[in-house]
Simulated scan of single mutants.
Amino acid sequence: MKRELNRRQLIKAIAAGGVLSQFGSFSALATQTKRLYIDGLCFLPDDLTDLKASNIDAYLCDISDIEAIKQPDGTTNYKRTYQACMRSISKALTRVNDNPDKLILGTSSSDITRAHNTGKTAVFFQIQGADCVENSISSGLSQVDEFYDKGLRALQLTHHYGNKFSGGALDNTQSTDDALGNKKSQGLNKPLTQAGKQLITKLNDKRILVDVSHSSPQSALDTAKVSNSPIVQSHGAVRAIVNHARCSPDEVIKAIADTGGLFGIFMMSFWLTNDKIPTTEHYIAHLKHVANVAGIDAVAIANDYPLTGQNNLLKLNNNNAAGVKQYLDWWHSLRAKNVLGYDIEPVHVVIPELNHIHRMKRIDSALAKSGFSGSDRDKIMGGNWQRVLKEVLG
């Protein structure tokens, strides 16, 4: 049954009535000595002691893997195939089960509370791209069921480029001539496909969270209309601040919020600011923007690096000038295809003070200094994720 009310309005009404317990109580969070910390995207660390050091209670955990696929033109493409992801999720599940003193497999929102109360970390398995669903609609998309049985609880529709389900944020642009004969780039803002609509119905029925990170703006807007459950952009940034294809327009941020979902801001600094020196203030500016256009209930934290931070930059003592070099070949290849934003050369990769195992505490402190109330910080640092996971997963 489709939504009859704007979910964002419903959330605010419930909050005003003080009965948010059905989503995960924010009033309970206020009495806890340690604020709940939930991250929108990270990975299983090689060293499990990183879990406790990070102070993160729960996070969406990307367990996907890629497979090299030879294309007809002789080039190689890398996809999160069914076989690669089935192997990787099985391996991740074994690792979680083998370490019950540190890890909890997140299958419902109650696992967040359990992790918080026991000093463990709940990980909610996520795959960054629905290429792993290779079988047909006629088969009932049964591979989704297989991944669910292995613990999958969040699925991203695509990664950077479009697939049979969704348009991608970095799909090639086409050049057109303006009135003066100058070349002008126009993005191929591809919509959600019919197969994508059927996949979303399947994910809703299985109570798997739909993630539109890396989707084209139109596909994200279409997904917000089709889904009967809240959707999220687990990790991304704001296009109004950095005009780049990987950053989302305000209309997408609002549409996600109107489903009752949220928008997580990640740590990749070249999509947070074009200034030469990235700072925590640049990160906070994105959080403020999401709050201004979509409401405080839509704001969340994400990473998209390992728990300790971007490994290469850590080895370089956060020397951005040296670290950015590893991205330049990729960046230049997309510039050649006229993809939005790649005309500006990146000069950094991380915000040094946030490329750290204690980044969640540092963000929390920066929010306080920026004037966010304790209740707003409860939501941003974890409460909004807890609510969304409660509504989608149960």
Rank of each mutant, 00 (worst) to 15 (best):
S142T: 11
A294V: 07
V232C: 03
D376C: 03
D177A: 12
T118C: 02
S234D: 06
N303K: 14
E134F: 09
I357A: 03
G181C: 13
R87C: 03
S365E: 14
V388D: 03
V392T: 08
G260D: 07
N355S: 08
I208Q: 00
N163D: 00
S269I: 05
I357C: 06
I296F: 03
G341R: 10
S25P: 04
A302V: 05
E134T: 11
M267T: 07
Q156V: 11
K2F: 09
V299E: 02
K183H: 09
K52H: 13
E146F: 10
D364G: 08
K184T: 14
S333L: 08
G168Q: 09
L203D: 02
M86G: 01
M267Q: 15
K337P: 00
V299R: 04
R207E: 06
D131E: 15
S365Q: 13
S21H: 14
N338G: 02
L60N: 10
N355M: 07
V290H: 02
L20H: 06
R207V: 00
H348C: 05
R80C: 10
I231P: 06
G394M: 03
S248M: 11
P230K: 10
S138L: 14
W271T: 15
G168P: 08
Q128S: 14
V324N: 07
S219L: 07
D47T: 08
I231Y: 05
L29A: 10
K102R: 15
N189Y: 10
S175D: 12
N274W: 09
I296E: 07
G168Y: 05
I112C: 05
Q143T: 14
K184M: 09
F147H: 09
G167K: 07
L188R: 15
M381R: 05
Q326A: 11
C42T: 15
G106W: 04
F23P: 00
S333Q: 12
F26I: 15
L29P: 02
D98H: 11
I344A: 03
P45Y: 07
L155W: 00
L51Q: 05
C247M: 06
S90P: 02
R153F: 02
H160C: 13
A237K: 05
V212Q: 00
Q326W: 01
I104M: 07
Y342Q: 03
V293M: 02
I208Y: 01
K34M: 03
V349H: 05
A302L: 06
A179K: 14
A224M: 02
E4D: 06
N135R: 13
S25D: 13
G374T: 14
S373Y: 04
A92E: 04
A58S: 14
K390G: 14
V19S: 13
A53C: 04
T259D: 04
N318G: 01
N312T: 10
K70M: 12
A291N: 13
T259Q: 00
D98M: 08
I265S: 03
R207L: 04
I344K: 15
C42I: 11
P306R: 07
